[in-house]
């Protein structure tokens, strides 16, 4: 097999290990400490935030306004409404202010 295929296979194995690893470690404990439980409940917001925050650094006015509008819509509407309004604002603003 080519080096490329080996890289892909190894990449798949290490990725799968990250996806099952946290569970394998935690399932060795019979009881989960309340602090660990609280930490686990914070995982979605904590991790997903890090996927958004740095993009704000390089964002211009069009991107920032689009994020703000999407964030406000998310308070009221569902995921689809939030996403489409954010994308629409972004496209329109980029058309006018580049």
């Amino acid at each position: 097999m080519s080096t490329t295929v080996w890289i892909i296979l190894a990449g798949a194995v290490v990725t799968y290990l990250t996806r099952i690893g946290g569970h394998l470690v935690l399932s060795r404990f019979e009881r989960i400490h309340p602090r660990v439980e609280a930490g686990l409940n914070a995982v979605p917001a904590a991790v997903l935030t890090t996927l958004v925050a740095p993009s704000v650094l390089s964002a211009g006015p069009a991107e920032l306004i689009a994020l703000a509008v999407a964030g406000l819509v998310a308070l009221r509407g569902g995921m689809m409404a939030m996403f489409l309004s954010g994308a629409a604002v972004l496209i329109v603003l980029r058309y006018f202010i580049g």
Binding site: A38, N41, A42, P44, A45, A46, V47, L48, T49, T50, L51, V52, A53, S55, V56, A59, E63, A66, L67, A70, G71, A74, L75, M79, M82, F83, G86, A87, L90
Partner: peptide, 27 residues
């Protein structure tokens, strides 16, 4: 820029959890 918008939506979806705002600010 579609993915940052999408991920922001996911973050907002957890806003009813305890300590959501402090966690988001710290992260």
């Amino acid at each position: 820029f579609l993915l940052p918008i999408y991920f922001l939506g996911l973050v907002m979806g957890f806003r009813k959890r305890p300590l959501w705002l402090p966690v988001v600010l710290a992260s």
